[in-house]
């Protein structure tokens, strides 16, 4: 099958005085139609920047974003605008992502109107029903809605133009637990109904495990492990992934588990080094780590950027 989206060698660098901050530093991955891909990593590792570059909310410093065989990064503004109906985003904080002076109707009508898809107000009613909101809410302003309702308006806006690809940028992290479950099942239902591909950005690993077919693990602007959810969660091969997964709380005090603790702090992303980005913190560091680390393919496209991937040291511990 043809991938829907191919990200090729994506870089995003920011100038910070004399330094260059390497927010995204050579990211490669594909997303196929209709699949849900999780992008996990700690805060500041470049997850959101990657997503913003894919959606061309920021111009990548280098690299290609090939969406349906078109390179978005090389596209001029006008055609890019008409392509935007095929890829959308749901933001993290619905209080921030809705214009306070637009009522729900105007917010939802606008994308349809801009892409020449608007016919009548029936469409808006249909859209509201899809995200389990009432028709009456169309006249409301954001400050008259609850957090969960606002996020559903955000979702409705994203799916209004029937996109093929939606970035979910931590869509549940600003909501409380009961709403989280509701929004997640809504997202899953919409994906099934509309056959959209998701890029789900989160640092909540259990949610990602739940929703996504595949997972990308990011650390300091690079993807260090990717594979199917089962492979990555049940058989993680990168030390960083292991450390990350061992931090998920298990709601049973009887189960003991070996924690992998990394030494030190996350280095600053302007002190970029050749080789493995984890080399200063890894308990198993060796000489090869200071050279560029290629991906090891462990089968079924389970790629790991670690010299120890698949070895005794990892699997025996």
């Amino acid at each position: 099958m043809e991938p829907l989206l191919r990200v090729k060698d994506l870089h995003k660098h920011y100038k910070d005085g004399r330094y260059t901050v390497h927010a995204v530093n050579g990211v490669n991955f594909d997303i196929f139609p209709g699949e849900a891909v999780g992008l996990v990593g700690e805060s500041g590792c470049g997850k959101s920047t990657t997503a913003r570059c894919i959606l061309m909310l920021e111009q990548p410093t280098h690299g290609k974003i090939i969406f349906k065989n078109q390179d978005l990064a090389a596209m001029s503004e006008h055609p890019l605008r008409s392509w935007r109906r095929f890829f959308q985003i749901v933001f993290q904080d619905p209080n921030e992502s809705l214009n306070p002076r637009f009522n729900v109707k105007r917010t939802l009508k606008e994308p349809l109107f801009l892409h020449g898809l608007y016919q009548d107000s029936h469409q808006l009613g249909e859209l509201m029903k899809r995200v389990t909101l009432e028709i009456e809410h169309l006249e409301r302003y954001p400050h008259q809605l609850s957090g969960g309702q606002k996020q559903r308006v955000g979702i409705a806006r994203a799916i209004s133009t029937s996109p093929d690809f939606v970035v979910l940028d931590e869509p549940t992290s600003s909501l409380d637990m009961s709403l989280r479950i509701h929004i997640l099942s809504l997202l899953r239902r919409l994906q099934r109904e509309m056959n959209m591909a998701y890029l789900f950005i989160s640092h909540d690993l259990s949610t990602v495990h739940n929703l996504c077919n595949r997972v990308l693990v990011m650390y300091l602007g690079r993807i260090i492990e990717m594979g199917t959810s089962e492979d990555v969660f049940n058989n993680p091969q990168h030390i960083y992934t292991r450390a990350l997964l061992s931090a998920i709380p298990i709601p049973d005090p009887a189960i003991k588990r070996k924690r992998i603790l990394l030494q030190g702090e996350t280095p600053n992303s302007r002190d970029i080094e050749v080789g493995c980005s984890l080399q200063k913190r890894c308990p198993y560091v060796r000489q090869e780590c200071s050279f560029p680390v290629p991906y090891t393919d462990l089968g079924k496209r389970h790629l790991v950027a670690c010299v120890l991937a698949g070895s005794e040291i990892i699997n025996g511990s």
């Binding site: 993290q92 992502s97 002076r101 637009f102 892409h115």
Partner: peptide, 26 residues
């Protein structure tokens, strides 16, 4: 730099509409 400016761009607003219709009233 607010998120609703990004949201306006991502639904396909040309930049003049983002500036004049989405942000200026605020």
């Amino acid at each position: 730099t607010r998120q609703y400016a990004d949201a306006a761009i991502s639904v396909g607003n040309p930049s003049w509409r983002v500036a004049l219709i989405h942000l200026l009233p605020n």
